[in-house]
Design a binder for these strands. Structure first.
Lengths: 204, 204
DNA sequence: CAAAAATAATAAACACTGTTCAGTTTATCA
DNA sequence: TGATAAACTGAACAGTGTTTATTATTTTTG
């Protein structure tokens, strides 16, 4: 019987509707401005209905996070195609920062809130897209270490080092701390700093 | 007449009372758990009273932020005393990370919320303690560049690079992202990464 | 000292938030 | 058609920051 199927499709449709509304509100009003009630009024349902499709707000945020990683992946496509490990690391770094600067709300959700992590106990499974990206970076680091004969450098440490650098830079930029360093031209400042980071690690 | 003086002292006392209560709640329940109403019940006043002493919640958060910087300064004392610029940078880095890890709530308030920045339009004056610390780092960087004859390195770029590194590392640690890299022994991981960062910039 | 003016404090309300649950409406099936 | 199941919601609960009209207290003045 195709009835139950259609039922499930309907259910999936409303779920999609909720998520699309949530996405729209996120991009318009930011993480703080995203509320269950705003979603409800947007899709013209009662707030209680949303709880029939999602356990709680965190579950919605988590699904949004996954959408964010899909977007981030698009920024990484160029890096994925690069064969030379050092060039690939440069490419990843640039893509990461570009994504962060151009998608503040997504980045905020994906990297700046602990809620999605705590939702399910084992964040390993919960944050698998994030982990996949880190592993890709780590593999690239391993290749780079081998190519440059950098002995005494653990790839996971190097990967974490790189991640911290770009994450910190994006973070400082987003919370407007960079305007302390340089009032205007923050974009140039970011580019320069990112360059300096990569150069100091791989010395050109 | 000493009466107005006493009045002002009384006023200052209640202000102090409010801030102490706020601090206590911050340390017990974190940034999210800190509310005007909780402060009010703690000091046994009505919530409205608090608005006679502070413009809004942000003003309280901002004053707490300043308290946080005073605490951070204590962590930096050792670094302030160091004369060798490279050693001083190491010392600053270690102190920064130590402070961040041992004082999550303070750090969160000082470096992870944009609210205190937006409170007054010119964040330069608003965040003067933060700026002072950055300038101290930048001066140290200048000395280090001169000592190591690292031409082509701008001190403010280098300072920002260092700041991004430690800030990113502390941030990832606090939001429990490091457990992706290494389930246990995150402390060792942080120490190793910090070392690697400093070595890669100054090559031992 | 009493009346007036200034100060201090608050209760109550407003507009929000996430979440739950007892009901009501709607659709399905025998 | 009547019973059952699924979908949906109104209203409430316990919070949040903030404002305003009102009351209580203190100080100043005539």
């Amino acid at each position: 019987m195709g009835l139950t199927e259609r039922k499930e499709r309907d259910k999936a449709e409303l779920k999609e509707l909720i998520l699309n509304a949530a996405k729209k509100i996120l991009l318009k009003h930011g993480k703080e401005g995203l509320s269950i009630r705003k979603i409800a009024t947007t899709i013209e349902y009662s707030p209680a209905t949303i709880y029939l499709y999602f356990k709680d707000k965190d579950e919605i945020l988590h699904e949004l996070m996954e959408m964010g990683f899909m977007l981030m992946n698009k920024y990484m496509l160029h890096a994925f195609a690069e064969t030379d490990p050092i060039k690939r690391i440069h490419s990843i770094g640039n893509a990461y920062v570009k994504f962060g600067l151009e998608n503040k709300d997504w980045y905020d959700l994906m990297f700046n809130s602990d809620k999605p992590m705590k939702h399910i106990e084992k964040c390993m499974e919960d944050w698998d897209e994030g982990m996949a990206m880190f592993n890709f970076l780590a593999i690239t680091c391993k290749e780079a270490i081998e190519q440059l004969h950098l002995r005494g450098l653990e790839e996971r440490i190097l990967a974490l080092q790189l991640w911290s650098c770009v994450h910190g830079l994006v973070n400082l930029a987003q919370s407007e701390r960079l305007e302390i360093v340089e009032r205007n031209q923050t974009k140039e400042l970011i580019a320069k700093t990112l360059d300096s980071m990569l150069i100091s690690i791989f010395k050109r």
